[in-house]
Simulated assay, not measured.
Amino acid sequence: MPISTARVATDRPARYAKQLAAHMSRKVETSFSPETGRGTLVFRAGTATLEARSDALLLTVEGEREDLPALEDVVGRHLVRFGARDELVVAWHRDNGEAGLVHRNEEDPAESAPEA
Rank of each mutant, 00 (worst) to 15 (best):
T47C: 03
K27S: 03
R104C: 07
H78Q: 13
P114L: 15
A113P: 01
W92L: 08
M24G: 02
R53K: 06
P13T: 01
M1H: 12
L58K: 07
E111C: 05
E35L: 12
S25P: 00
P34M: 10
E87N: 10
V89I: 11
V102A: 10
R81F: 12
A113I: 06
T49K: 01
P109K: 12
V42H: 08
K27T: 01
T47S: 13
R65Y: 11
E111Q: 13
M24P: 02
T30C: 00
P2D: 08
E35A: 15
P114I: 13
R7T: 14
G37I: 03
G100N: 09
A56G: 00
D86C: 01
N96D: 15
N105D: 15
E29S: 04
E115I: 07
A52P: 06
R94D: 04
G97M: 08
S25L: 02
T40M: 10
N96P: 07
A113Q: 13
A116Y: 13
N96A: 10
R12K: 15
T49D: 04
R104Y: 11
D67Y: 02
P69V: 04
D86G: 01
T30S: 02
T5Y: 01
V89W: 00
A91V: 08
G63I: 06
R12G: 11
H23R: 10
E29P: 01
G83L: 04
V90I: 00
N96K: 11
G100K: 09
L50Q: 04
G83Y: 06
V61F: 05
E107G: 09
L58Q: 13
D108W: 11
G63A: 11
F82T: 06
R15N: 07
V89T: 11
S31A: 09
R44M: 07
K27R: 13
N105S: 14
E62T: 15
E87W: 00
E35D: 15
P34V: 06
V75P: 11
L71A: 05
P34H: 10
H23M: 07
F32L: 09
E98K: 09
T36I: 04
F43I: 04
P114Q: 09
D55P: 00
S31I: 01
A70W: 04
P2V: 06
R94I: 05
L59N: 05
L50G: 06
R7C: 07
E51A: 10
L79C: 07
N96W: 08
A99R: 14
R15W: 14
A48K: 03
F43P: 02
G76S: 06
E29T: 01
G37P: 07
Q19V: 11
R12M: 11
T47E: 12
L101S: 14
